[in-house]
Amino acid sequence: MSQPTATDDQTGTETGLLAGYTLRRITLYVVLLVMAVFYLVPIETGLMTSFTDPDSYTGQAPFLPPLEPLIPGSGTFSAQPWTNAFDILGQGLVNSLILVVPATVLSGLLGSMAAYGLTNVDWRGQVGIYMLFVAGIFIPYQAVLVPLTQFWYNVVPLRTTFVPVAEVLPFIHAYHWKLVALIVTHVAYGLPICTLLFRAHYKKLSDEMLEAARLDGASISRIYRRIVLPLSIPMFAVVFIYQFTQIWNDLLFALTIVQFGDAAVVTQDLVGLGVSQSGTNFPLRMAGALVAALPTLVVYVFFGDKFARGVAA
């Protein structure tokens, strides 16, 4: 399309402007469409593959829906990979849930309390403590792996104390001690960043409002419960989504602390899913990956609007 030349004719100029406008629009939409396809194709491919019967899976054009014999070479439709994935990952999913829910809630709550104590309550030496929190963010994961194993296996007698507990309480198994260790580790590691996020939020709370609450007779803990906590709900959404995703997707700490056995979480189970001597079962692997990703997706759907408000706050 050539640029319209300027004419004295009023209508000519108008159509010219309109033409330039639509050209920009078309370009914009084409670019957006290409980007959308580019980003969605891998997921679409994974989804299509996961519904393909492993025996008919050829690996050619995996993004096509499995509509054999309608489309030759695209594979036969089958829900088998999904049911298999659920069967194999079931235990891992349960373990991951046992891990991620308390770890997320605890790191959020403790982070919020720590941030309140470090930001809105005045006491000597809080800057030093705060510096320790900040330093915590920068400790590399790799540096703590060996000490972490030593700590949980040799220093803390968590395993031995857990055996009698598991015998008494229902639904508790002896191997759950590994998950408890993992929960504590994740809370400790997530605490600094949670504290930092909450602190940024609490700094914006009006000092006068908190002073008014003090004059109203509320103690430090009552001010937290009745004023600060209700006002940090948007921030909790941010922290919960962030921590949930972090902990759910973690493999490194799980490998270090759980290592193997009944307490293995879903990311660990996913590593070996569908891999055997005879080759890789791609439909099963894809179904497994999607199954493992499902909870994070659900969390985003449920907390997404609050997340957006928290980020904007």
């Binding site: 009006s206 006068e208 409002m209 002073e211 008014a212 609450a213 004059l215 007779g217 103690s219 004023i227």
Partner: peptide, 15 residues
Amino acid sequence: AARDIAMVFQSYALY
């Protein structure tokens, strides 16, 4: 809290 006073702030400081 123990002083038996009430204060009105410039920013109103409402919850």
